[in-house]
Amino acid sequence: MDGNEKLAERLEEVERRERAVEKREKAATAKGLRHNLYEHITCSVGTVDIIIAACAALIVGLTVFGALSGGGR
């Protein structure tokens, strides 16, 4: 067995272990051991950025509106 074959075998072994850990984690989630609230989020980073920007705009807008219509202290 040459070096390349050994390396390939080792890589396969590592990948097999990783798959096993993933499988166990999925089983743990299904059993209810893991309650990651973000596990099932499917939206992209861009969408979340839009939500953050919208929230920021609303907070600033409402604060300014509230301060102006409330007449300050």
């Binding site: 953050i52 920021a56 907070i59 604060t63 509230g66 301060a67 409330g70 202290r73």
Partner: peptide, 20 residues
């Protein structure tokens, strides 16, 4: 409170802060 913002509006702003 210092900015004299309506109490109900404060709830909305705080909710938005949590969402953000």
């Amino acid at each position: 409170y210092y900015l004299g913002i309506n109490a109900y509006l404060q709830y909305i702003i705080k909710g938005l802060i949590i969402i953000m």
